[in-house]
Design a protein around this nucleic acid. Structure first.
Lengths: 228, 228
DNA sequence: GTCTATACTAGGATAGAC
DNA sequence: GTCTATCCTAGTATAGAC
């Protein structure tokens, strides 16, 4: 990482108001405030002035940290919202026994759900905004996410029982299902371990698995996730 | 309805370009163009100029049909996106045998899904936009939609098997599930009868119903829906 | 019913001082 | 590193002609 990570207060004109100012670097303060605002009122509807106000700096100062403005901020928030999950996918597929794909799928879903739940300000939602989808920053995000969808597809195809019909592709369907947490968080819910597990479980159930298999996958998954 | 519904070309200065201009009333042309734009690029990110351009009129002319501008257009689009479903809810609950709540739930979901699928430009998505949620027009929509969620809750509670854990309330969970069609449409899928049924089926499946019950509910549901 | 013209505001972005 | 000052564009909204 560059010198931007340096936390020491370096020289520079003091801010016009010097509030408590948190422990985050100015750059991270901007990211945090932006995330909250983008998610609550939309990307297009949020102005750089509003962001600056939240942080306690002037509008123009944002361009010191993000020379390309809002879009650059957005790009970084998007990246942070998929990266953690994707990075662990290969690991999961490696650790789970190929003869019990439900377990791997359960683990993947649970991991995905947990990551989304733990994202600050529910930033997973950003990628759903139409302005964002069309923005140049989205392209990079989308490539990364596609890797995730592929993993769901590989596992999903093995788990779905004959006779069970799934709309569209299994991968898209299951990933979509996991991402419903985003909308649950939006409607104000605080999701605990039980809710997270319930979502993963219903994902497997939708594929046609019986209660016994679900329970079994759930137990094995907890172990796998713990050793991650 | 008022004189706005009058389709005859009434006097008025001719448009600056006189294209094919469809068969819709000018007002409906504005609604249609707005719907497409709002869904594809967001509400806040869409300007009245863009709307006007699509319709083939000047920006200022929009205010003749919608004196309060964009928000008024939005309000009407939102209303059209829930009204059809909600209006049929009572009817459904009345028609289905109380001893087989899966059937009623299946019908409700299928109806809901079909309505969402048939909405022009996927306008069901509008209510998901943060700018929209905070807009004054949303309040009215939300009240209407809550009636729908209540119906899901009533039926869902009867269907969910003991031992099956559902995150949050059954009503919210199931309504959310039905609304995933919106996101499937967004990712480009064209949904046929089979896909619609698959969504309703997996909703029931998530509650813990077995394949035989699902099949049965599906058959009964088709009959009920036909006589609606 | 639609146009032209225009007033007004808000937001993005840059230059240079401290 | 943050500020002030300022420019410029884009968007909303109104008034009045046709």
């Amino acid at each position: 990482m560059s010198s931007a990570d340096d936390r020491r207060p370096r020289p520079g004109r003091p801010r016009h108001i010097s509030g408590p100012n948190s422990s985050l670097s100015p750059r991270d303060q901007i990211l945090d405030a932006s995330a909250r605002l983008f998610v609550h009122q939309g990307f297009a509807a949020t102005s750089t002035r509003e962001i600056a106000e939240r942080v306690g700096i002037r509008q123009a100062s944002i361009y010191y940290h993000f020379p390309s403005g809002k879009d650059e901020i957005l790009g970084e928030l998007l990246e942070k919202s998929v990266r953690p999950t994707v990075d662990k996918v290969a690991q999961i597929e490696g650790m789970c026994p190929p003869e019990a794909p439900e377990t791997a799928l359960y683990v993947l879903m649970l991991l995905d759900v947990r990551t989304l739940v733990s994202l600050p300000h529910n930033t997973g939602f950003l990628a759903q905004l139409p302005e964002v989808t069309r923005s140049p920053a989205y392209e990079q995000y989308d490539k990364t996410r596609r890797g995730l969808e592929d993993a769901y597809e590989r596992l999903g195809c093995q788990v779905v029982r004959p006779g069970v019909i799934v709309p569209g592709s299994a991968g898209e369907w299951l990933l979509n299902h996991a991402e419903t947490v985003i909308f649950m968080r939006r409607s104000g819910a605080t999701l605990g371990r039980a809710a997270e597990a319930a979502i993963a479980a219903s994902g497997i159930r939708m594929c046609g698995a019986g209660q016994d298999q679900i329970d079994h996958a759930g137990q094995r998954a907890a172990e796998v996730l713990a050793s991650l």
